[in-house]
Simulated scan of single mutants.
Amino acid sequence: MTTPPNPDQKTAAFSGIWPALLTPLNADLGIDHATLAVHCKSLIARGCPGVTIFGTTGEGPSFSMAERKEAVEQLIANGIPAAQIMVSTSCAALPETLALTRHAVSAGVHGCLMLPPFFLKGVSDQGIIDSYRYVIDGMGQDLPKLKMYLYHIPQVTGVSLSHHVIATLKQQYPDTILGIKDSACTTAHSIGLAEAFMKDLTVYVGFEPDLPEMGRRGSTGAISGLANFMPRVVDRLVTQPDAPTTPAERERVIELIGLLDSYSLMPALKGIMAMLSGEPAWLRVRAPLVALSADEFTALEKTIREFGIDPESD
């Protein structure tokens, strides 16, 4: 028997744009906490209700548990309210995912984003369900404080979240599973999730050109990589899907994504941040990613300046 949805469930999920933060690095490739905090404050000042740390855009699995815990603590110490932080706690080892989730919840963050198990491939739906259950059940007395968002990005993980997995987890944990972040970048798949689940939880997409379509179907926000430097545009795409300016802004976003196609995405996004901020910390990446070469950065800078990004309106 399906548990009836909690009427307060949808209102508990996040709304607005919570940028998928890029992670600035020092010369020793440690996290530059001061630059990250300044970036978060800038995004919140530009209207973002919160920020998301250590997702795919933030190179999350490239950092240790200790580094990830410290980064959350440093953000809070540097003035970012815990309730305005979303943490991707995904690790290859489930005990580490649980430890990071416990840490995030104890710090008072808004919620946690969790990938399915991503090291082994060809795993069954039951194995995926069991992985989420390991973490959720492991929260013990802190479970009522946990807000979890399922993270679907199969082109990176090699593991999909089926409708059966989502429905089963939602039924078993109706007050814990609040939403799905669908970063498969396939419009039909996102629409299918919205049609199947939007009544009981919120479906968010990571592919910005799909935001107007999802906004019409009830999506209330996004965790977006482009929102690191154009949060207002991304917000308008999902919250004002039928505004007269939306088609042109959507085409502008599509053009920008096309301009980045010839680069590795995360180093290119960091290159844009370096260009806009003048901070070299943004150019550095953790292996296995490779930073832009000097020639690549020069070419990207020329391209982006011609494209034009306006911090006042974007």
Rank of each mutant, 00 (worst) to 15 (best):
T3S: 09
D142Y: 00
V38P: 09
R305I: 03
I153F: 03
I257D: 13
H189T: 12
V123C: 08
H152V: 03
L161Y: 01
E195Q: 12
M139A: 12
G122D: 04
Y149W: 10
Q172V: 07
R232W: 10
V105F: 12
A194Y: 07
L169C: 06
I128E: 08
Y263G: 13
V72C: 10
V105Q: 00
L226P: 07
L75A: 06
F197G: 03
L269V: 01
G111T: 08
T11G: 07
D130E: 10
S15F: 01
F14M: 01
V135F: 08
C48V: 04
E255R: 14
S224E: 03
F54D: 02
V156N: 14
G111Q: 03
G127I: 01
E301I: 09
A107H: 13
R286D: 02
F14Y: 04
A243W: 05
A243K: 14
E208P: 00
F297M: 14
M1I: 11
P49G: 07
I166L: 01
T89Y: 11
E59H: 05
G58Q: 00
G16R: 05
C185G: 07
S90Q: 11
G140E: 10
R250L: 07
E249G: 13
L259E: 05
L292W: 06
E301N: 15
D295H: 10
A299P: 07
E195V: 04
K302T: 06
I191M: 08
H103V: 09
L289K: 03
I254N: 05
T157Q: 01
S106A: 12
T168G: 05
M266S: 14
Q155Y: 08
H152A: 01
P4K: 02
G127A: 00
Y149K: 00
K170S: 15
P117R: 10
L94N: 14
A227Q: 08
M1L: 11
K302H: 13
P247C: 02
L260A: 07
R46D: 12
V234C: 01
I31N: 06
G206K: 02
I177C: 00
L22T: 02
Q172S: 11
G192H: 06
E296M: 10
T220W: 01
F118Y: 09
P117H: 02
S124I: 07
T11W: 15
A45I: 04
M148Q: 14
K10G: 13
N78G: 04
Y151N: 09
V105R: 04
I85P: 02
K147N: 14
F297Y: 02
A184G: 14
A268V: 02
Q141G: 09
G192S: 08
T11C: 13
G225T: 12
N78Y: 09
G206Q: 03
F54Y: 10
S15C: 13
N26P: 11
P244E: 15
